[in-house]
Simulated assay, not measured.
Amino acid sequence: MFDYTVQSDRTVENVIDRLNESLKEESFGVLWDFDLSETLEKKGQGIDGKYRILEVCNPKAAKEVLSHHLEGGYFLPCKIAVFEKDDHTQIGMPKPTELIRLIDDESLHDIALDVESRLKRAIDQSK
C-alpha cells in the first residue's frame, strides 16, 4: 500500500493538537496547516466532514534528500492528512519509502525509511 493510515475516535482538532506535539518530539515542524474543507466551502465546493492537511518537515532529512537528488524536493514537504470518514477521524500519509522509489536512487532509501518511521510514531501517538 502506498499509504499509512490509522483511525481515531478523537476529533480532528484534538488529533491535530496531539499531532503537533508528537511531531515536535520526532524533530518535525509543521510548515502549514491547510484546512481543505474550509477552503472548498469558500469556493462553493463544500465536502462532507472536516479535512485538514499538514505539511511537515525535518530540515536535516530534507537537506540530505536534496543533497543526493534535487528532484527529491518534489516530495517535500511531507504531507499528513487528518479527516472525518465513517464517524471516525482518519490520520494518514503517503509512505515516504513508496514515494522515493519513484526516483531511481538507492541512496535515498534509508533517509525515507527513517522519515517514515518517525512520522508513523508521531501519527500513532496522536490517535
Rank of each mutant, 00 (worst) to 15 (best):
A81Q: 07
T5S: 07
S67P: 03
K63C: 11
W32I: 04
E64Y: 05
L70A: 15
L99H: 09
T97Q: 08
N14H: 11
Q7G: 09
K24G: 06
H68C: 13
D86E: 14
K60W: 07
V15F: 07
D104Q: 14
L66T: 09
N14Q: 12
S22C: 06
K50T: 06
I80P: 00
F75I: 10
K50L: 11
V12G: 00
V15W: 04
E25R: 08
K95N: 12
R10E: 09
P96T: 05
G44S: 01
G72H: 09
L36H: 02
P96K: 02
T97N: 09
L36W: 03
G29R: 06
I91Y: 02
T39K: 08
E26F: 02
T89Q: 10
C57R: 05
Q7D: 09
F83E: 01
L102Y: 13
H68N: 15
H68P: 05
F28P: 00
Y74T: 15
D104P: 14
L31H: 04
L19I: 01
E98T: 07
E64N: 10
R52S: 00
L40W: 04
P94G: 13
T5A: 06
L99E: 13
G46V: 02
E55W: 08
R101N: 14
V56T: 05
R10P: 05
H88Q: 14
C78I: 05
L76I: 15
S67C: 12
D104A: 14
F28H: 01
S27P: 00
W32F: 07
K60D: 09
T39Y: 05
S27V: 10
T97D: 09
E25L: 10
P77K: 11
K95A: 13
E21S: 10
R52D: 00
E64L: 10
L19W: 02
G44P: 02
N14L: 13
E13Q: 13
V6C: 02
S22L: 07
L66N: 13
E41S: 03
T5Y: 01
S8V: 00
I16R: 04
A81N: 08
N14M: 12
L40N: 03
G49L: 07
R18G: 03
Y74H: 15
I103D: 13
F75N: 12
G29Q: 06
L99Q: 12
V65A: 13
F83H: 06
D87K: 15
N20D: 09
V65W: 08
I16T: 01
P94K: 07
Y4S: 01
G44D: 04
Q90L: 11
P94I: 10
E26H: 02
K79C: 12
Q45F: 03
L19S: 00
E13W: 14
I91N: 01
R10L: 11
V6N: 00
E25G: 03
A61M: 12
E98F: 07
K79W: 11
H68S: 15
K42M: 02
L66E: 12
T39I: 05
P59I: 12
E38Y: 08
E84P: 12
A81V: 09
P77F: 10
G92T: 07
P59F: 11
Q45N: 06
K85G: 09
L36K: 03
E41A: 03
C57A: 12
S27F: 10
L70N: 15
L40G: 01
N14K: 13
E26S: 02
V82N: 05
A61H: 08
V15P: 04
V56G: 03
A81H: 07
D104R: 14
E55A: 11
V65D: 12
I91R: 00
F28K: 01
